[in-house]
Write a protein that binds this DNA or RNA. Structure first.
Lengths: 224, 224
DNA sequence: CTTCGGGGTAACAAGTCAGTAACAAATGGT
DNA sequence: ACCATTTGTTACTGACTTGTTACCCCGAAG
């Protein structure tokens, strides 16, 4: 169910909630900006409609606070002539705005357009964190906690991912080869190369291996 | 010229059309709901006034059909006590309703209000703002905050929109191709081209990419 | 002490891919 | 039907990634 919070100080609140209910939204009324904030955290809605002319709390502030805590889409209502506020609202992270007076179907259309946008945004694979190292598989980047990020190549990233996921346990050479190149491809020498190159990137000091440990004759392991 | 279709089964049809003509509308008479539909497609009017008590065809059905084919604004006429129908009409996408008997001045005012709504605010896509860039998908324009606006082509605009909506996350090549050309069309080379052309328009300085970041081997991301 | 094997290092070659550009085809407005 | 713009195609370049080969070092076994 698509949930929606509106502000009932708005003169058009009943028309609005009626329209949106008809369009399949669950509408939660809030009595002022602050309570919109409260209700937001209580109900975790899919969409928030904010009136910029909130009596008790500046609508822009509410917008900012909501955006600071989540990326719930926000539609701003405004009266004509407040173009400055609209710009500010969009800068603060609002997703759309509607100028009063608005037509019901326009409101519905916009609400659904906004929802379409946010729901179609792809889910990114979660970064893997071990110790002070964080691997972002999508960007092939390693963030080194205290400082600096390193760009990895695709293969380096794949190897790193495998090692980090199975941290602590020793991964045989063959296993690693398979996980990087797939079965029936790659060989020991290439893996050696890859480990070497990866180490140079994430272990500035070559003398004592900080993360990737060699287990002679068997394989490698990732230690925190 | 503002064009308007009314239904002449309406008892007040002549008063109505007289009033509206005086207010500067061109009035097209229709003999019943069906012919209102026909005339609508013939004349592509700016506004339609529908009587719910159409004799031959249910006014609500007409409303629904019209709305299914366009978003031409609709005003519903109703007699007092038909609140249910009004509700249904609004549900079906009507923009306003007027209770009979109505005063001519009120009718004109409402008609113009409705027109103002639909003409003064963009209907579907809202501007998207990220950082100092604002994309107007309707006009395919990018405003660059401090200075200047750039005209984009359709494809450039689509790409820009996708990137801005998903700002911060890495969009794989395939995803971008789908979002611009749809599935089973387009290829990497064309996307490369498109990115190249878009960059030349929004990033005057080619040396350091300001917005569109390349993630080698994966895709692109829009950074603020 | 020498030999042998495996890992680490390095240099180099081959391959891949993004950026760039020029040009051709398609589209759209007059 | 013509012109301008947009879109699709092909090709080249340079940077970076990946694969290949060789050599060094060190410890263990003969």
């Amino acid at each position: 169910m698509k949930t929606l919070i509106v502000d009932d100080d708005l003169a058009l609140a009943d028309v609005l909630s009626f329209t949106m209910r008809r369009a399949g939204f669950e509408v939660i009324m809030a009595h002022d900006g602050q309570s919109a904030l409260d209700r937001w955290s209580d109900n975790n809605p899919d969409l928030i409609i904010l009136d910029l002319n909130l009596p008790k709390l500046d609508g822009l502030k509410v917008c900012q606070q909501i955006r600071a805590q989540s990326n719930t889409p926000i539609i701003i209502l405004t009266v004509r002539g407040e173009e400055d506020d609209v710009v500010k609202g969009l800068e603060l992270g609002a997703d759309d705005y509607i100028v009063k007076p608005f037509s019901p179907r326009q409101l519905v259309a916009r609400a659904e357009a906004v929802l379409r946008r946010v729901t179609t945004s792809p889910v990114s694979p979660a970064p893997i964190q071990v110790g002070e190292l964080t691997l972002d598989p999508l960007r092939s980047e390693v963030h080194c906690g205290n400082e600096g990020l390193v760009q990895l190549t695709k293969l380096e990233c794949k190897l790193m991912e495998t090692l980090m996921i199975n941290r602590g346990s020793v991964l045989p050479i063959e296993t690693l080869i398979d996980s990087v190149w797939g079965p029936s491809a790659g060989d020991r020498v290439m893996l050696k190369q890859l480990v070497y190159r990866l180490r140079r990137k994430i272990e500035p000091n070559p003398s004592k291996p900080k993360y990737i440990q060699t287990v002679a004759g068997v394989g490698y392991t990732f230690e925190t």
